[in-house]
Amino acid sequence: MSTNKTYTVPTYAAFGWLTFSTFLAVFGPLLPVESFRTIHGDFLDAKPFTAGHWFGVDSNGYDIFSGIINGARLSLFVAFITVGIGGFIGSLLGITAAYYRGRYDSIVNTAFNVVLAVPNLVLALALVAVLATNVDINEAVPTWRRLATLMISLTVVIIPILGRIARASALTWSGREFVVAARSMGMRDRHIIWRHIVPNVLPVLIAVGFLAVGVVIIAEASLSLLGVGIPDGASWGGMIARGRNDLEYNPHALYFPIIALALTVISTNHLGDVLRGRLDRREARL
């Protein structure tokens, strides 16, 4: 089985791709690439490998290479931040619920169930629709606020997913002898959670968190296809939505962002799997 060797070629490839796209995301603005919003009126529909436009130009005149670089920034930024915040809140709730049990646990658990009862996309769509309304119509809702709205919606989606896993994992750990022993010795709850439970739950959360990054990237792309994703269609999902009408005439406008998106999701999923595999073996040794 592939998990026997910890680091295989695909693992290096996945890690490499994520590092590369993170590099693009962080240093993209410093690279000598034109803004993705520039309209190249003389290069409409240019095919890939056109001088100055490596990946070609779409039918609206947007350079695809600039789009991919800029999309890396937004897609990854949104994904990592939402999973980070959602994971933090979710695990905080999940771990404490598992530790304290009782009524608090059932409230948290019900809350998770409530959010999970609504399909991801429906939930995110509804939140975006309500939160992005402005009273004075001529005052444009600034891009950062629309981005924040989107991220809040996706965070709400992520919280119960990671929260449940944190809770389940913490539940098994808080039953272990060393936790029971610590409790009976009168150690403070906060201390026990921090010292004994969190370090054990965290690896599982990181592993699942990688999978969640993939979920968020795809969810954002779906929202873009429905017209409420990252503002101005600047993400990879937005590029796919834009390229949809060009599928027949300009397939590259669609293929490049799909490949970038799929590679990223494959990488995060793979790394999540590898981490999980390592954990499982550690568990088995215990």
């Binding site: 309209i39 609206n60 017209g227 101005d232």
Partner: peptide
């Protein structure tokens, strides 16, 4: 919001406005 053509159209107009020193805010 969400219409590619619509965004591309207004972005094009925005470009002309910027050239003339006029600020045009887009309302999705």
């Amino acid at each position: 919001a969400g219409s590619t053509e619509s965004l591309a159209n207004v972005t094009q107009i925005q470009k002309y406005m910027t050239a003339a020193g006029i600020k045009m805010n887009l309302l999705p």
